[in-house]
Design a protein around this nucleic acid. Structure first.
Length: 280
DNA sequence: CGTAGACCCTGCGCGC
DNA sequence: TGCGCGCAGGGTCTAC
C-alpha cells in the first residue's frame, strides 16, 4: 500500500493530533508481523509523551520523551498496514494487531491483514545505526537532495552497476520511498523505458529522471497519496492521486500523451506499466 | 559481487 | 452461488 507519499501524508495528518499526547498503555494482540513485535518493549512507552513525528523513507517515526531518555516508535506499514487514530472507545477491528491507548482516551491502532508491517521501539540517538536504517539511500525530498536529487546523485549511485533502471529506482539502498507505483510513474514522465539498463542512460536523462521522481512524489503528497484499495491517512481519509496515475494499472488503455496502448510486463515479480512509444 | 527468484501473509476480484 | 486462481502499494533471504 504505502510508499513515501502515503507515509508523509500519514505523518502530517497524525502529527497535530499526537504531539503532546501521553501514552497510557499499549496492547499487542498479534505479535507475528514481519518482525515479531515485542510486547514488553512497547509497554515501556507507557507514561511517555509524543514529541514529534518524523519519516525516513517508508518508515514512520514517532519520537517520544520519557524518563529514560528519548525513544522512537518505528512503524512500517508493509503492503496492507493502516495506522489510524480513533477517539473514545473504539471497538477493535479485524487485524488490529497493536493498539496504543493515549491518556486523552484516544487510541492509535495498527491494522495489517497481511502482516508485512513492523513496529519497534528504538533509542532515538541510535536510530541511524539501527540495521533498518543504516543501509538506506537518498531521502528524495530532503532539502539538500530535492533541489538537485540531480541526476548527478543518481548517476553516481549507478556507477558500476547494471540492470534495469526500474529495479534501481526501487532499491532502497539508492533512493528511499520509491515503490512500484511511483517508480512506474516517474519513468513514464521521464520517457524512460523501465527495462533500460542504468549503464546506458545519458546524464541529461538522469536529470530528467531525478526531476520526475521528485515531482511525482510531491504531487502525490499534495493529493493525499494514492488510494487503490485501502490507503487512508490518520483520520481515515482516502487520497486521490490514483486519478493522476498515467501508466500504473492502465494496461491496454491509451497513453495520455501519444495514444499507444499501455503495456504491462513483469520485472522481478512486480508489475510494470509503460508506454511502448513514449518510453525508450 | 550483483541480480533474480522465492517467500512471508490475507483479501479481493475475476472467470468458470 | 461457489470455487480456484492470480494479483496486490513491502522487504528479506537464498541461490546463482
Amino acid at each position: 500500500m504505502p510508499e513515501l507519499p502515503e507515509i508523509e501524508v500519514l505523518r502530517r495528518s497524525l502529527a497535530p493530533r499526537l504531539v503532546g499526547e501521553a501514552v497510557a498503555r499499549v496492547a499487542v494482540r498479534e505479535p507475528r508481523l514481519r518482525e515479531r513485535v515485542r510486547p514488553r518493549e512497547l509497554a515501556g512507552l507507557a507514561g511517555q509523551t509524543v514529541r514529534a513525528l518524523g519519516r525516513r523513507g517508508k518508515y514512520l517515526l514517532i519520537h517520544l520523551d520519557g524518563k529514560k531518555g528519548c525513544q522512537t516508535l518505528v512503524v512500517h506499514l508493509g503492503m496492507s498496514g493502516r495506522l489510524t487514530l480513533a477517539e473514545g472507545r473504539a471497538p477493535d477491528e479485524p487485524h488490529e494487531h497493536v493498539a496504543i491507548y493515549l491518556r486523552s482516551g484516544a487510541k492509535l491502532r495498527l491494522r495489517d491483514p497481511r502482516r508485512f508491517g513492523l513496529v519497534r521501539v528504538v533509542a532515538t540517538d541510535r536510530l541511524a545505526r539501527d540495521p533498518h536504517f543504516a543501509g538506506l539511500g537518498l531521502e528524495p525530498l530532503a532539502p539538500e537532495a530535492a533541489e538537485d536529487l540531480a541526476g548527478t546523485m543518481l548517476r553516481e549511485a549507478a556507477r558500476g552497476r547494471r540492470g534495469p533502471v526500474k529495479s534501481f529506482l526501487m532499491d532502497a539502498g539508492v533512493v528511499v520511498g520509491v515503490g512500484n507505483i511511483y517508480a512506474t510513474e516517474a519513468l513514464f514522465r521521464a520517457g524512460i523505458h523501465p527495462l533500460r539498463s542504468v549503464a546506458r542512460l545519458s546524464p541529461a536523462r538522469w536529470d530528467l529522471l531525478a526531476a520526475a521522481v521528485v515531482a511525482v512524489l510531491r504531487q502525490a503528497i499534495g493529493q493525499g497519496g494514492t488510494t487503490l484499495n485501502d490507503f487512508a491517512d490518520g483520520e481515515g481519509r482516502s487520497g486521490y492521486f490514483q486519478v493522476s496515475l498515467s501508466a500504473y494499472g492502465r494496461e491496454g488503455e491509451p497513453c495520455g500523451a501519444c495514444g499507444a496502448a499501455i503495456r504491462r510486463i513483469v520485472q522481478s515479480s512486480r508489475s510494470t506499466f509503460y508506454c511502448p512509444r513514449c518510453q525508450r
